[in-house]
Design a protein around this nucleic acid. Structure first.
Lengths: 345, 345
DNA sequence: TTGAAAGCGCTAACAC
DNA sequence: GTGTTAGCGCTTTCAA
């Protein structure tokens, strides 16, 4: 049997309230503090969080519902937020719903049963119905990476400026002289996919280019998807001279496809990739890329939910928008035609 | 305020005990069952798991402590085990200790405070001291992927037969006629590293080959590590004619290195890779590889801990050893010399 | 089959 | 600063 405060109380001769106060940061007379600390050591006492939760009506658990655990972007966000939450003595229960809305709803309800104090969700169900029960229960919800328009103002969120990210990448390619730019996107209709497409269109239209449907390929944010999409894109009769690939896994897959096809970067094709700087290391040493601040995303989520938990008015929801960074490598060159043109200049 | 059983009791006019029994699978008179079910719907009642835990002394939470969350092998194991555990109404708290023994110990203690019912651990600290407190508290521990010799017989475990896996791979290469085989390992002194090295040595020594230190490279189970290690290995004056790479990330990194160096597989070099069949998809279509049953590993862990929880004698620990599979692609050819030899045959 | 009542380990009034 | 006490929501004897 694990020791309880009652045991401490007996050993020290102090009342339960004093013991409790000691553990909750209250002021306790010096000699009693020592008394308690000795007893704690002697019994190897640790407070029972379950009992504490029952009393305080705070489980100190945050539920996290994500579409997929096998995704580097997601896991690095989770690591960062878990870190911060744990430092505040919050535990995190992660639930991978395999991008299945039914499972997502089950996960939310499961977590609600466990009396989680808050919910962080990278939503699969773009309608947001799975979150109704959480909102009805009055527990704070923070969306990550993807917004749900229908829930606007009713939940908080942490996202990156996807439109801007895409605009920046395309502008970089335009500046290098490219006029024919391919785009590799994730699943159609996903929030991030739409935003990144929008940014692409914005930048191109700003300079009067109407992209062809052929140059926009939807993959599924996997390595394999990126491989296929890039391969098909580059096999078309008039392939683009530059490429923007919009997530980490697809970037790896895409680079592999290019290597297999004997297309050199940047000599034959300029490429801007996505994410995960560290892992790239010396593998694609000179890849220019758009980098999402996963670490900050995770931390912002954690901070946001903690703030929400400490507020009287839990309806004061807010959306945090983080910026991406463009890190220049040497994978963007002027297109061949442009270089040829220069010779005649 | 969330509704409680007391509320149900009032609405239905039944006693608390009856309500409780209903929720715990006891027999309740038909008309009372209906009465309860109506009240449940009306109030949107869900049982409070925290209160239940306090009473039953079972939190229905399993703690999982892993070295790294950004690792595909680990996340797929976790997904599988979470799936199974959740179906049994167990929640999973995952704790990523960043391969830091200090953090690992903290994680274990944190989870103990939360009164987890059991612990699943892919250990970072090879001495196992971080688990002493869990064992002292009498909660079952299941190790995954890595054994801790010092804890032999005191904890359960699920591992793959790493020695055999490596033996199989090397035999495959030997059978193809290779006599000079390179090996890319993880961090030195890691359980899996040692086992995989052992298998390599076993197979080679069985045919009288003493491998050179030059042909055995230690990386750190990352893509970048694999890239570097393969590059260095292949740049040496007398590079091997075949290669066994012992994890997923390093296999990708290694393949990229080979492509960058212009070394063709299998024409110039035979390669056997590791893991993650699905993701490879058409990227390395013909790679022969050793495949760990991540899904089964996760499930076995879950089953094992559930079994342990239901046993009187929690000391009846056992180790489950799973086998790997060799799936043949076309990345293994006879070495060039051998082929040259054939011409003269 | 059902109900009354005790109590899991803790916190938070409240009185001292 | 400290002790007494009630009670969080549930399960589980025990008696009816």
């Amino acid at each position: 049997m694990a020791p309880t405060m009652k045991d401490l109380s007996q050993i020290t001769g102090l009342g339960l309230a004093t013991i409790s106060k000691y553990f909750n940061g209250g002021t306790v007379r010096e000699k009693n503090r020592i008394l308690i600390e000795n007893a704690v050591k002697q019994l190897h006492f640790v407070p029972n969080e379950v009992a504490r939760s029952l009393k305080t009506r705070r489980s100190h658990v945050i539920g996290v519902v994500i579409p997929e655990l096998s995704n580097a972007f997601i896991t690095s966000i989770i690591s960062a937020m878990e870190d911060l939450l744990r430092r505040r003595n919050y535990a995190v229960i992660v639930s991978d719903c395999r991008s299945d809305p039914k499972r997502e709803k089950e996960a939310v309800n499961f977590l609600l049963n466990r009396q989680v104090d808050g919910l962080i969700n990278m939503p699969t169900d773009a309608t947001g119905t799975h979150l109704k029960s959480a909102m009805a229960a009055g527990i704070p919800v923070v969306l990550v990476d993807r917004l749900i328009p229908a829930l606007d103002g009713q939940v908080s969120a942490v996202v990156i400026d996807n439109v801007r990210a895409s605009e920046k990448a395309i502008q970089e390619l335009l500046n290098a002289g490219h006029r024919h730019i391919g785009l590799i996107l994730g699943e159609p209709d996903l929030y991030t996919t739409n935003c990144r497409l929008q940014g692409y269109l914005n930048s191109l239209r700003a300079v009067g280019i109407t992209p062809s449907q052929e140059d926009i390929r939807y993959a599924n944010y996997t390595m394999n998807g990126g491989y296929q999409a890039v391969q098909q894109l580059m096999q078309q009769p008039d392939p683009p001279t530059a490429l923007f690939i919009t997530n980490f896994e697809m970037t790896i897959g895409g680079m592999l496809a290019l290597q297999n096809m004997g297309i050199r970067v940047p000599e034959d094709l300029s490429v801007i990739g996505f994410d995960k700087l560290e892992m790239f290391g010396n593998i694609f040493p000179h890849l220019t890329l758009i980098h999402q601040p996963q670490h900050s995303i995770g931390q912002e989520c954690a901070n946001l939910i903690l703030a929400l938990l400490n507020e009287e008015n839990r309806l004061s929801h807010r959306t945090v928008i983080l910026n991406t960074q463009l890190t220049r490598g040497t994978s963007v060159h002027p297109p061949k035609q442009a270089e040829a043109g220069k010779e005649f200049a």
